[in-house]
Nucleic acid binder design. Structure first.
Lengths: 128, 128, 128, 128
DNA sequence: GTGGTCTAGACCACC
DNA sequence: GTGGTCTAGACCACG
């Protein structure tokens, strides 16, 4: 049974997307693996204090992307294999990085300065 | 007259915000400077194929932030000074970088790999 | 003892219905005949990796339709006679064909093309 | 504006799927083409006497499959080009036919009989 | 108990 | 006006 203890809702993006990303990043990090059991919609709904429909929406998306598998009446399980893990990793990473690089170029930032900013931000994150 | 040739709409964030950011990043890069004339709302609306209300909203935000100023009829001019430029620069940069670093940490990416990814993406951007 | 080796679960329709149809189509084909012994509910449950309740539901339907009969303890036997076989044949066939023809008409497919598609699909099925 | 006059709800399959299929088959038949305007969620909701959420679900699916395009605040439009039309056509057809052929083989029906059944059903459909 | 669908109605951001 | 998200609560089929 995968744990949602580390999950914390934030404002700004839809709840169902936050749940999707939580699972996706968990898979990338290796803390969620194929065969793991998902909490039932009702249980997770109660756990997060969120409407069951919102959970259903997130699960549906994950199912459509082949990350989990659901059958009516039965529990839901993670099905993401290592190939998917790599795909997810690449997808999210390149997406994040590309956006940032594009923005920086538009601002006339040099490559060296960009790298320097990353390193600084990295340290600040650690301190938190 | 500042040019919107380089502007390209994307999905995911509101159009009016994309316009605001486009101007802000131009100011940071120095391609847009104080005194430059903004296109009229009608012209920009037609140019981008976007509802006039959307343009109006973007201009309103830019005005409220002291980045542009409406003078003599419908014409608007850029008023951002060097102090603003620095403020904008800091605001946008730290914001961009912080989001990316946080995501990467969540995925278990090392600092070295992060830097490497930036460098790769940088080259790819150049090729375009 | 009738064999479920050829049975393979699919998504989209309930498992218990797939079991029912498997038996019915076997009877039509003549591979399942009156007097054949059905596997016990427990055995079939284990064999297909399916919840015992699901098997029970399928057997109940088959019993209600007079296709199988539970005698002497837990054992069940096929009771379908030749009259039933013909009824089943007509029921399933007309049902299958009618649905397909209706869909095709809705898509503007001609009768000739329909026949051609059947012939092609037939060959592909053989190759498997 | 595409018309839902011909649409009539049926029991057995979810409403939102019926809407999806209605649009898909319309595209295949050529009665719905790229650039057509979709009715707004609210309008269609009222027209069909169905909850707006149900409509939203159908539209979301169509959007995910690239058949329509939606932007917040703006109307929704059909974007399916001729390539998609062919893909849809092939997808739905092969799917329908494959299922039927597989069933018939399981019942021990010969190819000739299958073709004959199709032809008969075709005539019956016409008479209706 | 579990997944899936649906209704009724609300709120927000966007155009 | 339009699309998108969310809540509250219900019903059904499935296992």
């Amino acid at each position: 049974m995968i744990s949602f203890d580390q999950f914390q809702m934030q404002d700004g993006s839809p709840i169902y997307q936050q749940i999707i990303e939580f699972v996706e990043r968990g898979i990338i990090a290796g803390t969620i693996v194929s065969g793991d059991e998902m909490p039932s919609r009702r249980v997770l709904s109660a756990l997060l204090g969120v409407n069951p429909n919102t959970i259903q929406k997130a699960y549906k998306f994950l199912e459509d992307d082949g990350i989990i598998e659901s059958r009516s009446g039965a529990k839901s399980y993670v099905t993401a294999n290592s190939k998917m893990q790599k795909q997810l990793r690449t997808k999210l990473l390149t997406q994040d990085v590309a956006v940032m690089v594009q923005n920086m170029k538009q601002m006339g930032i040099s490559r060296e300065e960009a790298v320097s900013l990353i390193k600084t931000a990295w340290k600040d994150e650690v301190k938190k």
